[in-house]
Amino acid sequence: MLLAVFVGFVAVTLSQLDPTLLAPSGYPPWEKIVASIALTFFAYLGFSVVTFTAGSLPNPARMLPQAMYLALGITTALYVLVSLGVFGTLTVDEVIMHGDTALAEAARPVLGTTGFVIMAIAALLATASSVNSMIFAAGNLTLTLSELKQFPPVFGQPGHFGGTRGIPITVVLVLIFANVFDLGAIASIGSAVALVVFLVVGLAALRLRAETGSNAWLITITMLATCFVLVLFAIDTARNAPQTFTAMTVLVLLAVVLDFVWKRVRARAPDTAR
């Protein structure tokens, strides 16, 4: 249903597209364009959730790559078309002014208030489905990390309403972040974390390439591109959103400290960490 709504949005906005709004003369500097790619990484982070379904697939070796490539292909095409529809209908200043409701505002000139409401509801439903998938992933992820002793065992213990206690703990932390930080700051922090996660995954893929049959050159190029985007994103955030950059730095340091403390606790009481 959501896919149909966004396809309809693309059709409506592209039919009213103003090519002059997409002129390269209005583009920001290339450094900002590259830095903004970090937010795209964050948008695509949800696709890692697909891998958690591998155990439920009849033939994961064949079906999982197909599902990933198909989902990424469809979503990339949709993102590009939606972006063309928005920036071909609204000016950059209007997009910035309307912020989170830019998609709904882009539909207003053609569909009126009804179009605005439809796109707003679609955005809410898309957000809800994303949250649901992330909670699903959090349960499996925290369980796995607790079994590997990377997280305290409480994350893997059975919850009162099914699943593990890692799920409500994750939900509470998400609610705290959502109410303490601005949505833009959360997206920036999530983007930085996503880039770091991708770098770590790439490093693991390099070390395990003999077992997985991965292409070392492809992984290396991807990691270099990720590092390049991360550096430019950090510089741009430090210049234009120093508070967000400070929050990112504090969270990284906090994660390092908590990991260090947990390892010390685990080393002193190995029996209780099982």
Rank of each mutant, 00 (worst) to 15 (best):
residue 72 L to W: 02
residue 50 V to W: 00
residue 109 P to Y: 00
residue 62 R to C: 13
residue 40 T to E: 11
residue 116 F to N: 02
residue 83 S to R: 04
residue 28 P to T: 01
residue 29 P to A: 07
residue 91 T to R: 04
residue 114 T to C: 08
residue 74 I to H: 05
residue 86 V to T: 04
residue 54 A to G: 10
residue 70 L to S: 13
residue 28 P to K: 03
residue 70 L to I: 13
residue 18 D to L: 12
residue 64 L to Q: 03
residue 69 Y to L: 15
residue 85 G to E: 11
residue 74 I to L: 15
residue 69 Y to M: 15
residue 79 Y to E: 12
residue 12 V to G: 04
residue 40 T to C: 13
residue 22 L to N: 00
residue 78 L to I: 09
residue 27 Y to I: 00
residue 14 L to T: 03
residue 94 E to D: 11
residue 59 N to P: 11
residue 115 G to A: 05
residue 61 A to C: 07
residue 114 T to G: 07
residue 11 A to S: 03
residue 59 N to T: 11
residue 46 G to K: 02
residue 36 S to P: 10
residue 21 L to M: 04
residue 22 L to V: 09
residue 23 A to F: 15
residue 117 V to H: 02
residue 39 L to F: 11
residue 34 V to A: 12
residue 93 D to H: 06
residue 108 R to W: 08
residue 71 A to H: 02
residue 87 F to L: 12
residue 99 G to F: 12
residue 91 T to N: 05
residue 39 L to E: 01
residue 48 S to F: 13
residue 71 A to V: 11
residue 52 F to C: 07
residue 72 L to M: 12
residue 100 D to I: 13
residue 65 P to G: 01
residue 57 L to E: 01
residue 114 T to Q: 03
residue 59 N to V: 14
residue 61 A to L: 12
residue 58 P to V: 01
residue 102 A to I: 09
residue 94 E to Q: 13
residue 29 P to S: 05
residue 106 A to C: 07
residue 70 L to G: 06
residue 59 N to C: 12
residue 93 D to R: 02
residue 97 M to A: 14
residue 13 T to D: 12
residue 57 L to M: 15
residue 106 A to N: 03
residue 67 A to W: 08
residue 117 V to W: 05
residue 122 A to R: 01
residue 65 P to H: 01
residue 49 V to C: 07
residue 19 P to C: 07
residue 108 R to G: 07
residue 15 S to E: 15
residue 23 A to Q: 10
residue 15 S to I: 03
residue 110 V to Y: 06
residue 118 I to F: 03
residue 99 G to C: 06
residue 84 L to N: 05
residue 62 R to D: 11
residue 17 L to Y: 10
residue 109 P to M: 02
residue 69 Y to P: 08
residue 103 L to N: 03
residue 97 M to E: 15
residue 71 A to R: 03
residue 58 P to E: 00
residue 122 A to E: 02
residue 27 Y to N: 09
residue 88 G to F: 11
residue 63 M to Y: 01
residue 30 W to Q: 13
residue 32 K to L: 15
residue 105 E to Q: 13
residue 115 G to D: 03
residue 57 L to W: 07
residue 70 L to E: 07
residue 92 V to G: 12
residue 19 P to H: 02
residue 36 S to E: 09
residue 68 M to N: 05
residue 82 V to F: 06
residue 49 V to L: 02
residue 85 G to H: 10
residue 11 A to G: 04
residue 71 A to D: 04
residue 89 T to H: 04
residue 12 V to Q: 06
residue 58 P to S: 06
residue 47 F to P: 01
residue 32 K to V: 15
residue 76 T to W: 12
residue 41 F to K: 00
residue 72 L to S: 01
residue 13 T to K: 01
residue 49 V to Y: 00
residue 54 A to Q: 10
residue 60 P to E: 00
residue 109 P to I: 03
residue 62 R to H: 11
residue 116 F to E: 05
residue 20 T to S: 14
residue 62 R to Q: 14
residue 76 T to R: 00
residue 104 A to D: 06
